[in-house]
Amino acid sequence: MILRKTPASLAIALLLAPFTAQLAHAERLVTSLSTHRVLISSNFTGTSLVLFASIEDSDATKEKPKKYDIAITVRGPAATFVTRKKERILGLWVNYESRRYPDTPSYLAVLTNRPPAEFGPLELQTKHKLGLSFAALPQTIAADEEFGAALLRVKKAEGLFYEETNAVTFLTPTLFRATLPIPGTAPTGPYEIDVQVFANGALAAQQSTAIEVVKTGFEAFVAQSAREARLDYGLGVALLAFVVGTLAGLVFRRS
């Protein structure tokens, strides 16, 4: 699809823009990403992007540089997930209760320089969605511990939710680098990358960028055929099965 932010995040960005200016922090964030397009071909097993960013502080005092905290949140295309819990009924383990999690990122990575809990008070984490649980789940159902925790646990085990609290490296007090992992199982589509800078327990600067994970070449052709020329594609696979089966029959004939 076209590379574009979701309307909601755009609205948030617009709302936040005057705020960040108004907060009158003098910091400005400049980011650079190694690539904005992750291309999937037949040998794709995952990749990683390198993000460099510099914090420019107009009224920095040379003697006592500020100590910054960084949170980088990568969100894949949103999807609706259903978490089901098995219960024992009449001796059988069957799916019983379930919860729906609409508008949840299908891929989520939160990279920080230290645990977000050390950035400042809890309100800071909830307000700026710091850390995996705050970034993944809407506030309204985050309270439903058991199911939300299970969603995080299962997605982490699948490698699609990822949290690293020492992944941001400061090269100088104002220049930092982070490596963003894109696993082989990453869903295709637009990814949003939010870089937040905190100083003294408050948001000091923010910058959003985006990348796109797309199939290329043969993989793109197959995906497009399966989607757009369904009947031809299905007949093609059936023909392939017929040819492979017949050829094997001929090859193995003598003996």
């Binding site: 399966a226 369904r230 594609y233 299905g234 093609g236 696979v237 059936a238 392939l240 099965a241 492979v244």
Partner: peptide, 27 residues
């Protein structure tokens, strides 16, 4: 054969690379 075509039309989830690998091993 009929199921393959039906799945391709109804669910669009037939993976030709997976299918071909399985087929060659299968025969």
């Amino acid at each position: 054969l009929a199921a393959t075509v039906l799945h391709a039309v109804e669910n669009r989830s037939v993976d030709v690379v997976l299918a071909l690998t399985l087929m060659i091993g299968g025969v």
